[in-house]
């Protein structure tokens, strides 16, 4: 019962306390305006390069933008505590680490889901792309799974934040990596073979592919494999992230780097 409380209440309080984007002056430009302009940028580059349809870029970039809240906010659950000088207090509590850290991941994934959904709806309306009516509900599910998978990568990012100072630098680099590898803008089959293989193992690749299929009218059954792969990748990253958090927590105590800021 105590763990359930830590998971839900602790996660919510952490989100409200550390998620500095909750200020509308930050939330609106960062999460509602920026994804629209990312979509427009790549739609127009796509038109200029004569490569893919507008719908390809709208879906790809809407889902890929979930990486911003999922990566940055997860890292902030560590860096933010450090800035508030509360990280030490959190880590000496007897609370179980699994609900403590995964509870912080839940609001992050929920926000990532909302941001990607908003970007898809607003981006489609602005650019004028069509989504098959049968695809709406399954695409919402795909976005939820993709946001969860990306939050798994965010947990790894947060773990590194326990021993590294510049979490914003790493978050930006991971975001850039996903921009290249996830197939958001460059069809995966156009990537060099090595990048193609890496692409198969990163969050969002399968989610984006599934959403594109659904938008073009494919059935839910035809994307179950992609959806399953995205969920499995998310689980694997979340498990690795949690293990890394435990490992780096020990390391940061041993090396006295917890308060490195």
């Amino acid at each position: 019962m105590k763990s359930v409380r830590v998971f839900f209440v602790g996660g919510l309080i952490s989100y409200r306390a550390l998620f500095s984007w909750l200020n509308p002056w930050v939330y609106v430009p960062s999460f509602l305006v920026m994804p629209i302009f990312q979509i427009l940028l790549f739609v127009y580059i796509g038109r200029s390069a004569k490569l893919q349809s507008d719908s390809f870029y709208v879906i790809g970039n809407a889902l890929q933008f979930a990486a911003i809240p999922c990566l940055f906010a997860m890292a902030n659950t560590i860096a933010g505590e450090r800035n508030q000088q509360t990280l030490g207090y959190i880590l000496i509590t007897p609370a179980r680490r699994l609900p403590l850290f995964l509870g912080r991941a839940l609001p992050v994934a929920t926000n990532g889901f909302f941001v990607a959904l908003f970007a898809l709806v607003a981006g489609s309306a602005i650019v004028g792309t069509h989504v098959a009516a049968s695809g709406y509900a399954p695409i919402v599910l795909v976005i939820a799974v993709s946001a969860f998978a990306c939050t798994g990568l965010g947990l790894i990012n947060a773990a590194i934040g326990l021993v590294a100072r510049e979490t914003a630098v790493l978050s930006n680099i991971l975001f850039g990596g996903l921009l290249v590898l996830s197939g958001a803008n460059v069809p995966v089959h156009d990537l060099p073979i090595v990048l193609r293989q890496v692409s198969e193992g990163v969050p969002l690749t399968h989610g984006i592919a599934a959403a594109r299929k659904l938008a073009s009218g494919s059935s839910v059954g035809s994307v179950l494999g992609l959806l399953g792969a995205e969920a499995l990748i998310g689980l694997a990253y979340a498990a690795l992230g949690y293990a890394l958090i435990r490992g780096t927590e020990t390391l940061s105590r041993r090396r006295a780097t917890l308060e490195r800021a």
Binding site: K50, G176, L179
Partner: peptide
């Protein structure tokens, strides 16, 4: 230095694969 390189890479792939 690094961040714009990701966008440049995407753009290079797109223009290379495209018909422009």
């Amino acid at each position: 230095v690094l961040y714009p390189l990701f966008f440049a890479t995407v753009a290079f792939f797109m223009f290379k694969a495209g018909a422009d």
